[in-house]
């Protein structure tokens, strides 16, 4: 059973004028088919306006599909009765770290989710402890979120989601507002959750470097899934990615250019080490 199954998913943003007449219809998702297995680390790539955030918001039922079907954890999202179950099992981390922290103390913010779903007090404390530890923020539990760095705030936000014990975490451009250090911090925290706790991760981004470690990559453009495969499969198609106005990681690009110049190295090189090995063969 797939954790997420989208079939011909369509979402239209309808803009209305003051009288409520339809001014224009914008098709943000256009027949998206996606399958994600439990425990996978899946990256969704695309430049601005490709529909990747709209897709993410469907997974948490913040938006409902206009057409098509979407099952999350075996539950149909168009059924209102499943709403809280789905939100509990598919946690979401957003872009702006400041705008998703609710309480003025770190531990109280992490406790917010469990409080909402009615977890008993002792259990909340246990979960807050565990999830703060799992993102390495336990020592900051009594701090005010305002004094933390961007990367630390995002880790608190992840802990807040973890405390609800979801099966899946969706990170909607969670690193877009962070500096390189913060980005690395958040990415490694998420990878650890994926490897150690088997949490399904859906990582939405437009930074190419971040998707190298993913199990599978979906590339979206103009509301459609245009490419799908392992990072290596995706990055061996440098020309196609350029057409989609996406940057390729520097190392991959260098390897590609070298290959074009006639050097005998394979396509889809992802890391510096691989390139060194290929060159020194």
């Amino acid at each position: 059973m797939n954790f997420i199954e989208a079939r011909k998913l369509v979402h239209e943003y309808i803009h209305r004028d003051d009288e409520g007449n339809v001014e224009s219809v914008q098709r943000a998702l256009d027949g998206v088919d996606v399958d994600i297995r439990p425990g996978e680390f899946v990256a969704v790539l695309g430049h601005n306006g490709s529909g990747k955030s709209t897709f993410a918001k469907h997974l948490n039922v913040l938006l409902s599909p206009t057409e098509g079907t979407l099952w999350v954890d075996g539950k149909d999202v168009s059924d209102e009765g499943n709403l809280w179950d789905i939100r509990k099992n598919a946690g979401m981390v957003f872009q702006n770290p400041d705008n998703q922290i609710i309480a003025s103390v770190v531990e109280e913010d992490v406790g917010f989710g469990p409080e909402n779903i009615g977890v008993p007090t002792d259990e909340i404390w246990k979960r807050v402890d565990q999830s703060l530890r799992s993102v390495g923020m336990l020592e900051y539990r009594e701090h005010s979120p305002n004094r933390l760095s961007g990367g630390q705030k995002q880790r608190v936000a992840i802990a807040g989601v973890m405390a609800m014990e979801p099966k899946c975490i969706i990170l909607d451009e969670a690193t877009a507002m962070l500096d390189p250090n913060g980005r690395r911090e958040v990415l490694s925290a998420v990878q650890e959750l994926n490897e150690k706790k088997g949490v399904t991760i859906i990582w939405i981004t437009h930074y190419m470097e971040e998707v190298i470690k993913a199990d599978r990559v979906y590339v979206m453009d103009e509301g459609k899934v245009v490419m799908e495969g392992t990072p290596r499969e995706i990055f061996s198609q440098v020309e196609r990615l350029k057409e989609l106005r996406l940057d390729v990681p520097q190392i991959t690009l260098l390897a590609h250019e070298l290959r074009q110049e006639g050097l005998d190295i394979p396509e889809g090189i992802l890391t510096r080490q691989e390139l060194v090995n290929a060159l020194c063969r």
């Binding site: 948490n60 913040l62 809280w84 939100r87 509990k88 946690g91 979401m92 957003f94 702006n96 705008n99 998703q100 609710i102 917010f112 989710g113 909402n116 779903i117 807040g160 989601v161 609800m164």
Partner: peptide, 10 residues
Amino acid sequence: DLAMAMEARC
């Protein structure tokens, strides 16, 4: 943004 984040956390 905050309202959405709160809703997403049930």
